[in-house]
Each structure stands twice: as structure tokens, then as C-alpha cells.
Design a protein around this nucleic acid. Structure first.
Length: 635
RNA sequence: GCCAACGUAGCUCAACGGUAGAGCACUGGUUUUGUAAACCAGCGGUUGAGGGUUCAAAUCCCUCCGUUGGCUCCA
């Protein structure tokens, strides 16, 4: 007899070899109908799996995250079959689930186009209606290799698979695919699906390999959930910083300068507020600030190693037969400043910041609004210190990063530690010491992090801070990079206690990363609704009619005298229209002034996003607003 | 850079072989308004650029530029 323990604590005794499906039938017809897969003894399995011995069993339905993932995985297979029916020449490569959906990589010379999606969905519908059982076939690795012989992709997949038992899944008569599983019991059980997009993807993510067609889709337990998901996507697009940037007149891009952002007056207000705050925090954390040139002689870049390691991302210009590079990084210039005089251990740690404008040539396909550009301002700093000071300094930077992110309301970010890449300078020993110090600092602060082997900068390992945009794509903001190489290349020294000259350790770090990117992420984070301290226009005075325009002007003067960024709506529209426009412009406060308010010398305060109004004196409003600004209230 | 799609008025979109149209914005006028968009009129386009096919091209074909979604690469 087998003994399965259910999540509610019950134990069921069934004969060995009883399938999970039979057990679900025993528990209840509802569950039997809803079951898509199961977790048996901590393994994800098909419901057709027989049980033996004693094991915990959790039956999964589309409501469980794991069950939904199984549905999505099966949906990928169903889509693959549909595509194979429509394009018999298609070769299947790899079809995993991703967040909120799945994709299948397909090798097919004829392009699959968005107008084909309906045909694919119709064919999938047919497969779903057929509702054929999905069965698992197991065999040895050798048998599996023979079964797929001639198919380079599946052969490769088998060679990469773990374990000696290789499984295939088959549904209907013809369709079979190499797969670890598990899958839902039949093709009728994949929920409400939609084919979303198609894009090129290199085999194994290697640009030297063939480009495959990656077809993306999603599926949800019910049509209602599918529609809710599509609505969410639609909503997310409204938060897109490129859309809001145009709508709110913050910035623009032009064909004349692809990848170079033009900041408009309102965008500059946000920018300057960020910079003011940044300077205040950095002064408090013991940073000095410098500014170095954008164009520097090519020879400097030979010395720094950028010529050998970064040339393809750099811009150059020739004047008087001399080649200058447009700086892609601020460090070499900062090192020239360091070398203008002797340094003592007493100055260390020396924290030198620079809001440096850098240019990096990015291939055309990777630009993305403000988030990925060819010219950006790094909130850079270089910390010169002794080896003993590395860990406390890195901890200090981590604390600084957390303080600044918190001020903007960023609670969700993740941390990555990147190690030695193939193309690098410096000895293996240096890399090891540097990498250990970074990990040590993270562990000291008890922060979880993910290791990216081989993803470091060419001069040292790094810690990166990543934040997601409106569509869930994550981007790197802050970074802490250790560098034992650059000081050697530039023969930097400091005089130590024992009166000998030694090379300092250099830490490159950025908190916001790129101001442009940060601004983009910030816009999406707030959906354009900037907190009061950042809002380009903080208050708008709305007269009920021209009759109270004069009083409105008076209130405006009070607001402006108090240092608030305020405007007066002089239009002759009705008050409802003026309010609607304020919402569109994302103005945090609306002050309605009509005859009543003029009479009592007050203002009717209405907050963005709310219907409630409150009457108070202009002075009381100013005091409350200034308090919010001073504390950088997030509302 | 690669794969696919897209590019029409300032913005959002329509017209899909027969000499470009709407809403919003903008300008002028009417209205003098009480809490999420009053009314009328006007202005506005060598349809991203260049070439080709055709009696005729926004529409079909080619090249380039830009943008979008991915891949690769990075802040």
C-alpha cells in the first residue's frame, strides 16, 4: 500500500501504483476535474503518475502558481503543434514558460508575422477542442538520441539534459516533443490563451548562431483572467515614460540625435530636484565633487585600457591631427585630478563624486527612451582607500544607495554580484580579493544577491542594483565596482603611515546610475504622478470664472512668494474642465477660488486623484505644502 | 548589430491604387461658468527621406533614416 499525505494533514492509503488522477477522483469530482498536475514528494509530476510508498502529495490546479505554469508549458506545446500544422517545415527548438506566459523558439525560414497569430490561435483552438490526452514516454538517453537523430536542436537539448531517463510528451496522433514535463492531462486543459508577439532570438542566445523565431504567448485559467492580464498590459503602457514624457512635456527625442535626450523645462525641474537632493546626501556622506572634460586625448584611453577593451562603444573626433575620445566613463579624467598632488593615508577614504556626461555608442536596436541612451549623466564617484577600508566603504555605499532609493519610494530592487569576465585586466588574485570584499559587504548587511559569473567590468567585479520598469523589465541603476587595476596603470600612489608610497584601492560607484535612466524609471514608478517635491508644477489656481481671476492672481503671488511652483489657469472654461485638465497634467494640488473663497480670503484645496475638497487660508495651504516638500513626502 | 512590425496635422488615429479626414491641442469668437472636459468658426499635411512600378501611389516594390517588441550587449 502507498500512503499519501495531503496538505490538510489527512493521509490516504491506496494500493501501490494508483495514479494521482485516481486519488483526486477519490477526494472529489471537483478536484479531479480541476487537477492539472501535482507535487509528489517534492517533485512536479503529471496526474497520470502512479504513487508508491509514503509521500506528501499536493494536487495542483490552475489556481496554484505551479499549476498555472504547467498549463503555460503545455500551451507552449499546443502552440508548437499548431505552428507545425501550419508550417510543416518548422523545426522546434525550445519552449519554456516565462513570467505571465510562455514562448517557443522555432527554426523556420519563412517569417511568422503578427497577422498569422489568428491562424495560429484558430489551430490551437482546434487542438484544444480535440481534447486529446497528453502522454509521457520515457526512455534511456541513448534511445532518445536515436529517436531525434537528424534533429540538431533536440539532440542538443538531450545532450544538455540532466539524468539518464529522457522523456517525451505526445498528444494526438502525430505530435511529440522532447520535454521534461510535467504537462496537463489533455489538450483541452490549457485555459484561455493568446499569441502575443514574435521576435528573433539567437540559438543559445549566441549572436554567432542562427536566428530563430521566438513566438510569445500567454494563457490563464479563465478568459476573465486573460482579459484582466491584457488590461494590465494596457495600463502598464500608460505608465510608459516615453508616453508620459510627451504627454507631460518632460523630454523629447529627435531623428537628428538618436539616443540623445532633449530635456524640456518641466523635465529639468525634476532633474534639478533629483540633483539637489543627491548633492545634499553626498555632502552629508563625506563626498567632494569634481567635473572633468568630455573630450580627452586618445592616449589617455590607451593608458586606461579602454582603447583595448571598450573602443567599439566609443565616439572619436580628430582636431589638428590629434584624436580625441568622447569619454564613455569618468574614471580616467578623475585619475588625472588625483595625480595633481601627493596624497596621504590621512585623507583616506577619499570620496570624489562627479556628475559626468558620458557617451557610449549603443547598437541601434537597443535604445529605449530615456532608459537606454547614447548620452547620459552618471552620478559617478571614485573612492580612493586602503585595502582595509574596502569593506566599510562598500558598506557605506550600500547604505547610501538604500537611503536614496528609499527617498524615491523604491522598495523593490534586487542586487547582483558580477565576477571576472573573459576580457579583463589584472591578476586572478586581485579579482579574487576584490570579489570576496564585495560579497563580504553584502553579507555584512544581510542582503540577498544573485551571482552573475563572468559579468563584471573589464577592470573589476561589481555589485549592481536593479529595478523593474512598467512592463517588469529590470534595469541596472546603482553599481559598485572594485578596481585594483586602474591605479596601477596610472601609477597612483599615496603615502602610508610608514612613509612608503603604495597604490590606493579604487572603488567606482554610481547610485542612480544614469540620471536619464533614473528619471525614466522614476516616471514609470509614479505613473507620472510625481510626489510634491518633484512635481514640475506643484499647485494650480483655478478661478471659477474671470470674475475671480484677480483673487486667483493674488493667491498665485502668495504661492510663488512662498517658493512653490504654481500656475494660474486663466482660461474661460468651466471649473470641471479646468479640474480635468489638472488631472491630465498630474498637478498635485488644485486651488479652486470663486466668489465664496474671495469673500472669506480662502482657497478650496483639492488633491490630485481625490474628489474631496477642503477649505483653508492660502497661508495654511502653503505651510502644509512646504512641510510635505521638506519631508519629501511620498503622499 | 540581428529578426519582425510600424512611420499620415503638435498628439491619438482614419483613409489601404482614383489628387488626404476626425477628435484633442492651437487661434478667433460666443459663453462668465462651483469641482474629471460648454458651443461656433478658423489654422494646420510635398503622408519619415530618396528612388521605382502605374494613366494615377499615403496605399505596391527597393534603399536609407527613425521608432516599437524581442535577441545579443550595457548605466
Amino acid at each position: 500500500m502507498a500512503e499519501v499525505r495531503l496538505p490538510d494533514g489527512r493521509t490516504l492509503e491506496v494500493p501501490d501504483g494508483t495514479t494521482i488522477r485516481a486519488i483526486t477522483e477519490q477526494i472529489g469530482p471537483q478536484l479531479a476535474k480541476a487537477a492539472v498536475a501535482a507535487r509528489l514528494d517534492d517533485r512536479l509530476v503529471d496526474v497520470s503518475t502512479p504513487v508508491a510508498g509514503a509521500a506528501p502529495l499536493t494536487v495542483l490546479t490552475g489556481k496554484d502558481p505551479e499549476g498555472l505554469e504547467v498549463m503555460r508549458h503545455t500551451a507552449a506545446h499546443v502552440m508548437a503543434e499548431a505552428i507545425c500544422r501550419l508550417w510543416p517545415a518548422a523545426r522546434l527548438v525550445y519552449g519554456p514558460t516565462v513570467r505571465d506566459g510562455f514562448f517557443y523558439d522555432i527554426d523556420l525560414d519563412e517569417p511568422i508575422r503578427p497577422e498569422d497569430f489568428e491562424r495560429i490561435e484558430a489551430e490551437m483552438d482546434r487542438i484544444v477542442k480535440e481534447d486529446v490526452p497528453i502522454t509521457r514516454i520515457e526512455m534511456t538517453r541513448q534511445e532518445a538520441l536515436e529517436r531525434v537523430s537528424g534533429d540538431p536542436y533536440k539532440t542538443d537539448n538531450i545532450q544538455r539534459a540532466d539524468g539518464e531517463i529522457i522523456s517525451f510528451y505526445r498528444h494526438g496522433d502525430g505530435f511529440e516533443d522532447l520535454c521534461r514535463g510535467p504537462h496537463v492531462p489533455s489538450t483541452g486543459r490549457i485555459g484561455a490563451f493568446k499569441v502575443l508577439s514574435v521576435a528573433g532570438a539567437y540559438w543559445h542566445g549566441d549572436a554567432s548562431q542562427k536566428m530563430l523565431q521566438r513566438v510569445y504567448g500567454t494563457t490563464w485559467p479563465t478568459g476573465k483572467e486573460l482579459r484582466a492580464y491584457l488590461d494590465r498590459l494596457e495600463e502598464a503602457r500608460k505608465r510608459d515614460h516615453r508616453v508620459l514624457g510627451r504627454q507631460l512635456d518632460l523630454f523629447s527625442f529627435h531623428e537628428e540625435g538618436p539616443g540623445f535626450a532633449f530635456l524640456h523645462p518641466k523635465g529639468m525641474i525634476v532633474w534639478n530636484e533629483i540633483v539637489d537632493f543627491w548633492r545634499e546626501v553626498h555632502r552629508r556622506h563625506g563626498y567632494q565633487e569634481i567635473k572633468t572634460p568630455i573630450l580627452l586625448n586618445e592616449s589617455l584611453w590607451h593608458r586606461s585600457g579602454h582603447w583595448d577593451n571598450y573602443k567599439e562603444n566609443m565616439y572619436f573626433t580628430v582636431v589638428d591631427n590629434t584624436t580625441y575620445a568622447v569619454k564613455p566613463m569618468n574614471c580616467p579624467g578623475g585619475l588625472l585630478v588625483y595625480k595633481t598632488r601627493k596624497h596621504s593615508y590621512r585623507e583616506f577614504p577619499m570620496r570624489v563624486a562627479e556628475l559626468g556626461l558620458v557617451h557610449r555608442y549603443e547598437a541601434s536596436g537597443q535604445m529605449h527612451g530615456l532608459i537606454r541612451v547614447r548620452q547620459f549623466t552618471q552620478d559617478d564617484a571614485h573612492i580612493f582607500c586602503t585595502p582595509e577600508q574596502i569593506e566599510p566603504e562598500v558598506i557605506g555605499v550600500i547604505d547610501l544607495v538604500q537611503e536614496i532609493y528609499r527617498a524615491f519610494g523604491f522598495e523593490e530592487y534586487h542586487i547582483e554580484l558580477s565576477t571576472k569576465p573573459e576580457k579583463h585586466i589584472g591578476s586572478d588574485e586581485m579579482w579574487e580579493v576584490a570579489t570576496r570584499s564585495l560579497a563580504g559587504a553584502l553579507e555584512h548587511r544581510g542582503l540577498a544577491y544573485q551571482v552573475n559569473e563572468g559579468d563584471g567590468a573589464f577592470y573589476g567585479p561589481k555589485i549592481d542594483f536593479h529595478i523593474a520598469d512598467c512592463l517588469g523589465r529590470t534595469w541596472q541603476l546603482g553599481t559598485i565596482q572594485l578596481d585594483f587595476s586602474m591605479p596601477q596603470r596610472f601609477e597612483l600612489v599615496f603615502t602610508d603611515k610608514d612613509n612608503t608610497e603604495k597604490p590606493p584601492v579604487m572603488i567606482h560607484r554610481a547610485v542612480l546610475g544614469s540620471l536619464e535612466r533614473f528619471l525614466g524609471i522614476l516616471i514609470e514608478h509614479y505613473g507620472g504622478n510625481m510626489p510634491l517635491w518633484l512635481a514640475p508644477e506643484q499647485v494650480r489656481v483655478l478661478p471659477i470664472s474671470e470674475k475671480t481671476l484677480d483673487y486667483g492672481q493674488e493667491v498665485l503671488t502668495v504661492l510663488q512668494q512662498a517658493g512653490l511652483r504654481a500656475e494660474l489657469d486663466r482660461g474661460d472654461e468651466k471649473i470641471g474642465a479646468k479640474i480635468a485638465r489638472c488631472h491630465g497634467d498630474r498637478v498635485p494640488y488644485m486651488l479652486v477660488v470663486g466668489p465664496k473663497e474671495a469673500e472669506s480670503r480662502s482657497v478650496g484645496v483639492r488633491m490630485r486623484g481625490s474628489k474631496a475638497t477642503q477649505t483653508m487660508t492660502a497661508g495654511a495651504f502653503v505651510a502644509a505644502a512646504k512641510e510635505k516638500i521638506a519631508t519629501k513626502a511620498l503622499e
